[in-house]
Each structure stands twice: as structure tokens, then as C-alpha cells.
Amino acid sequence: MSRSVRLILLSRTAASIVGMATRLVQINMKARDDSALGGFWAAALGWGVSSEGPGVTNLEPEGFVYPDPVAVCLDLVVSPEPKTAKNRVHVDLATTSAVHQAEVVARLRDLGATPADVGQGDVRWAVMVDPEGNEFCVLDPRPLYRDTGPIAAVVVDCADPRAMARFWGKAMDWALHEVTDHQAVLRSAKGVGPYLEFIRTPDVKTGWNRVHLDVRPYPGDDLAAEAARLRALGATVIDLGQDDVPWTVLADPEGNEFCLLTPG
């Protein structure tokens, strides 16, 4: 069943949630071969695979009813443009022990991932890239991520975590857990699923992000009104050549693109 159909079948209880902020529902990753890259990530996460149309591969946990904050889904969307720089958005994978971490790294290498050096130095986590060169981390075991599912965190590089906390903390109904000069950490107010982390880095954003966030208002909310609210918070409307689509493409105050999807 497609996500659009499932959205129509949401209960009237969910539809009664009006006027709330938006929430993170999925990660959009561009791919030269969405099917092949989707196969890698499905095996890496242990998730199911579907497709809402040509050139799009959708990943989510088996038995998952979209949308639910217990998981942030992954959409692979075909794009002919090559990857030319380190992604500013990546995922961190959770592990439960040092042995499990080593097993996950070995399994991912067998699936086609390779170790990567992004200047991380001597760290406890493993930095890797998927078969198309997208960076991700396999974390050392940490109590914070014991109940997140396979994705511990969605991580966004930024120049000013406090500014990101101000924007995203008001943009979404997720709870702000921590904000310092180094990082800002949010999670669904329901206390489930992965964390969203904005990490200070010296890297300068170049070009559009091949990996970006997709957020969705609640049933009954108005897309245009929500877009206006986000613009008032500091977002800007941008044109990436998306033509006539039902969603709105915006950028946060640091220029990171994200899509505001139709309410549901």
C-alpha cells in the first residue's frame, strides 16, 4: 500500500490534531540507482522496500504504519547529478556493545560499504560510506540510543547549533533535549525514534544537499499556512527545478534544503 493511500486511511482521531507544528517523517537521499542503493540500506537497517513510483525507492520498518515518530523513513530518489562533496546530512547507526559494533561494521562491508576518512581522527565510532559514497557512522554503544531503533540519529552539519535549535525547535513539535555551542539535540515529543542532531562543523555548504529532511504537517493543517509560519521563523522558499509538485521546498536559516510535504 502506498504512503499516499495510507495517509487517506488515517483515523479521525489523528485528523483532529490541528494547528500543531510540523514533524520530521523521512530522509530524502538522491541516488544514481535508487533500487540498488535502496537494497543496500534495506539490508543495513533490516527494513522493508516499496516504491511509490518510477525512480523512487521507499524504506521503512516491517509492519510500520506511516507516519509514526517511532521511525524516520528513508526515500531514495534517482538523480543523475554526481556527488561532489561531503554530505551535510547523514545517519548514525546504533549498536548495543563493542562486539555488536564490530559485527555491524563487518556486515556492512560485506554489503558494499567501505571505511572513510573525513578527518575524524581517532574516534570510537566507525565512519563509512555506502556504495554511492554517502557518509554514515556506526556508533559505539551509548545508553542514549538504546531504544532508537537502527538509526540512532539524523545528523546535520551546521555553523551555529544554537541558531538551528531556535529555528527547528519552533518549526517542529519535537522536544529540544540539549543545546550548546557544539550541538543541538531534538527528539520526538513522544520519546521514540531517532534523535535529530545539529553539529557544529567548519565545513562550508557548497551546492544543494543530496540528503535532506522531509517534514509533514498534521492532518487538518493548511500547507500554505504552515509554509508561511516557517518563513516567519526564518525559512526561505527555494527553486531547485521541482516544477509543479504538491510539496513546498524550503531552506532553513543556514541554507539546508528541506521539503514541507502535504499534511497527513
Results as ranks from 00 to 15, higher is better:
202 P>C: 01
64 F>I: 05
136 F>M: 15
144 L>F: 08
215 V>A: 14
192 V>L: 12
213 L>T: 04
67 P>W: 12
90 H>L: 02
148 T>H: 03
46 G>Y: 11
24 L>W: 09
255 G>P: 14
61 P>L: 15
230 L>S: 03
240 L>D: 12
46 G>Q: 04
42 A>H: 02
5 V>S: 06
38 G>H: 14
8 I>V: 10
48 G>M: 00
101 Q>H: 10
162 R>F: 00
56 V>D: 00
159 A>P: 08
170 K>L: 13
112 G>D: 13
194 P>C: 00
34 D>Y: 00
163 A>N: 07
33 D>Y: 02
224 A>L: 13
193 G>Q: 05
98 A>L: 15
45 L>S: 01
71 A>P: 02
128 M>A: 00
19 G>M: 02
117 D>Q: 11
201 T>K: 10
58 N>V: 06
114 T>N: 10
145 Y>N: 04
84 T>R: 13
139 L>D: 15
229 R>T: 15
254 E>V: 12
105 V>M: 06
12 R>G: 11
189 A>L: 04
216 R>W: 05
22 T>C: 03
173 D>W: 06
83 K>H: 15
229 R>C: 05
220 G>N: 04
125 W>Y: 13
253 P>C: 03
128 M>W: 01
246 P>W: 03
142 R>H: 11
230 L>P: 13
172 M>P: 13
119 G>E: 06
8 I>G: 14
51 S>D: 00
264 G>P: 06
96 T>V: 15
209 N>Q: 08
246 P>Y: 01
231 R>G: 05
78 V>H: 06
164 M>E: 12
226 E>N: 11
103 E>W: 07
135 E>K: 11
259 C>Y: 04
100 H>C: 04
121 G>Y: 03
28 N>C: 09
209 N>G: 13
217 P>K: 06
